[in-house]
Design a protein around this nucleic acid. Structure first.
Lengths: 203, 203, 203, 203
DNA sequence: ATCTAAGCGAGACGGTACGTCACGTCTTGGG
DNA sequence: CCCAAGACGTGACGTACCGTCTCGCTTAGAT
């Protein structure tokens, strides 16, 4: 990992002083603290640099703008990746996972995260990476559960998995962002139940 | 609380020169144009005042900050309230309405709207009004359709309407925001169908 | 005093409601208080009107701008006209009067007065009136003392009275405005003594 | 205290990019021009920055407010320091110097100078420096002439020099500011003559 | 062991927008 | 016509960050 092959694909070219890994960490820590204390809007380049004890141009060497720093900060978070215990049925698995996601999204960090997703230009590289990082991880877990349910014959064979995932996570996300109703275990239970049963009277 | 009689219960009390309705319109028009041309971040107080041919303090007399102006602008929009044609079945009604919403959300205005919702402090009066205005209007329409469906015996009696609405709108909202998959008529169809049928194998 | 012949020379013409003398007083009082509390820069039209319980246009009806209000306020002051006791010699009379003037000029009001004199455009009518009001009153008193001194043969016959007055008051004014040295009784004594040495008849 | 070695005792300590001397000059030039064209009130931060082709915060980096900029501008002036030719007698020297001062004070710059002295808060560092700069320079010249006169036996030994200076400059200052009488060579002559009559050794 | 190019802190710099204040004028409605 | 209240366009205030640009000083790897 300290081999000459490091940054950039062109092999063994690193003239000059290499970037200090300490600085990267210091910046992310400063940004994280600011986000927790003041929210997303508190993550300004000036404040980050000041608090990290770092020059402003140094921050710009790592990330192109304040948005990117905030994203990188959130991606660096470990707490946003809750561990999932193995449980029995599909229904219980889904409930468990959704509860974890709900908890995460409802936190301060969750709000920052949803805000930054809603605000950012979805066309930039970093925004795509950011979205993949958070959304796809969760979705893949959910997809796993659903496929397992199909194999176990707990679910119908021809369900649309992608749509299902949107139903589940979308509903959570929606409530968190809009705040029109609480996001708690009861809601998650009701949600999963209803997604499972459907609405039609005669089936 | 949501009754139409709200502001200034005591009639005809307003000392001093009354505010010109023309000015309010000019400001909103300027803000709307800026939002369409430059996006939400283009709606600055300075630019709004300049384009409206109005003094900056005048804008501040009406709204306390740029966020509020943007919200008021979006609330003033007529195009965000698509007309819903009367159709036969619940399934068709839902599909039709969701398609309209999807279209709206996918537009530039839709992105502005979601961005401003995500960014705004949800505790302020204006933010609440804003959310009611957009979210509740759509939800009430959807609620109407679902209740009609129950009365017509097309739907089960004991479904959780609120959760259902979140499933539907949340899924849309989610895809629009994350951009991980297309939002088109086919998706809406699949979504409604799956919400109706549920996931369980044997019912 | 409420008779129709009031303001303006044109006889017995007063269409509409006459101006209330109370209002003039209220405005001057408000301006005076503001000047004492916040200094000259605190005398803004807005603050004056607010504190006087008067509409802004009303203030403008009486005076054309904030400068004029401040001047009028200072002219309205009674405390700036100290009473002069009759004393014996020219030397004592001058000392006594200059001490009173020095005291007045050194006060907060005095500083406001000097500031407004130094700042104002000397070409305006009101500025001239203002200067006459303060300067000439004092100078006339001083002139009286000097002429009396000549009559009493305490002073040489051919002194230049105007120049002498400028020497005396100018020195005071200068120290107050520039603040490069204290303005106290000792200074006044030294000043008069030195000026006198040039004025005495027999030396 | 007034020793030339003053700022930054420790030599060569200045982290960060140094301030450009060009910019300082550009700002002062812009301020000077504005003062000449529009008077003291025309020296606004916005106008200065605009005309100097400089960002507003940059101006604030150098001086804390518009007053300070104006003072610095006047201090930067060369024309306010007239050259004094060597002449023979004390009487002629004083007359010559006072004429120069009178001319300076009567000019537009002179009025700006007196206005700014009268307006400024005398407690600030810059105001003190400003007053020292202008008042003390002139006074020191005058003091030199008077001391020379004592040495040459043209003047009495025990005159109060400071009071004398106030008599002379104060009288000039007074007339310029109040405008109650002309300030010309005749006045200066009469003034000096009268002041001298009190200073001459043998009378 | 030097060379040398980048990393790095500090902070100046031109901008743009912020939200506030006071200006002096204009517009109500009531007396 | 007077008056209180307050809307209005204007323009300056002083502050906060933006993202870029010098400065001198480390600090390594390549020579």
């Amino acid at each position: 990992m300290v081999s000459p092959v490091k940054i950039k694909d062109n092999i063994s070219k690193a003239p000059g002083r290499p970037r200090s890994p300490k600085i990267r960490k210091a910046i992310l820590k400063a940004a994280r603290d600011l986000m927790n204390e003041l929210g997303l809007s508190g993550v300004t380049m000036e404040a980050v640099a000041r608090r990290a004890g770092v020059g402003k141009p140094t921050v710009y060497r790592y990330w192109p703008n304040r948005h990117a720093v905030a994203m990188a900060t959130l991606m660096d978070e470990r707490t946003l990746h809750p561990e999932l215990k193995k449980t029995r049925s599909v229904l219980h698995s889904l409930e468990e996972q959704l509860c974890l996601v709900a908890e995460t999204l409802s936190s301060r960090q969750g709000r920052n995260l949803t805000a930054i997703i809603a605000t950012s230009d979805p066309n930039t590289e970093i925004a795509k990476a950011f979205q993949n990082h958070f959304v796809m991880t969760r979705r893949n877990e959910g997809r796993g559960i659903l496929e397992q349910g199909i194999r176990r014959k707990e679910l119908r064979t021809h369900i649309n998995i992608e749509v299902t995932l949107d139903q589940l996570y979308g509903a959570l996300f929606f409530r968190v962002l809009l705040g029109h109703a609480v996001v708690d275990a009861a809601f998650v239970k009701a949600l999963v139940k209803q997604v499972m049963k459907g609405l039609e009277k005669f089936k």
